[in-house]
Design a protein around this nucleic acid. Structure first.
Length: 114
DNA sequence: GTATTGACTTCAT
DNA sequence: AATGAAGCCAATA
C-alpha cells in the first residue's frame, strides 16, 4: 500500500481526543492534524483506522452537522446508533452542532505535541 | 502513465 | 433550502 502512515497516525490521534457526547467535523480534524484543506483525507484515512486504537469515527460529521453517509445506508444507521449511545440526538441524518460541537481546550491540544 | 472517485468545505447562485 | 463549481489530494481503476 502506498499510504502515508505518518499523516494517518496524526489524524487518528486527533480523532481520539474527541470526547463522548460531542462531535466534530472532517475539516476541523484536518486542521488540528496540521493538514488544512484536506477534509477528504480524514475520511479516507478513517477506513484504515486500526481497531485497537478505538477511534471514535462516529463523532465526525460534515461541516453542516450531517452524517457523511447517505441517509438510510447501513453505515449511516450504524453511526446514528453509536451517536445515540453517546447521548447525542440525531434527527434526519443530522446533529445540532450548536449543541454538541466539540471545543477543545489548550490542554487537550498540547497532548498531541508528541 | 492518465482519469475518476470520494466518510469534504466554502462560496456563490 | 438546494444546487453547482472550484479547491483538495490519496486511493482506485
Amino acid at each position: 500500500m502506498s499510504f502515508d502512515r505518518e499523516k494517518a497516525q496524526k489524524i487518528w490521534q486527533t480523532v481520539v481526543l474527541v470526547p463522548a457526547g460531542t462531535v466534530s467535523s472532517y475539516g476541523f480534524i484536518a486542521d488540528l492534524a496540521g493538514l488544512p484543506g484536506r477534509a477528504r483525507m480524514v475520511g479516507k484515512v478513517m477506513q484504515f483506522a486500526p481497531q485497537e486504537m478505538r477511534v471514535p469515527w462516529h463523532r465526525i460529521l460534515k461541516s453542516n452537522g450531517q452524517i457523511a453517509f447517505a441517509a438510510g445506508s447501513e453505515s449511516a444507521r450504524r453511526q446514528t446508533e453509536l451517536l445515540r449511545l453517546d447521548g447525542i440526538e440525531v434527527i434526519n441524518n443530522r446533529v445540532k452542532l450548536k449543541r454538541y460541537r466539540w471545543q477543545p481546550d489548550l490542554g487537550e491540544l498540547l497532548k498531541m505535541e508528541f
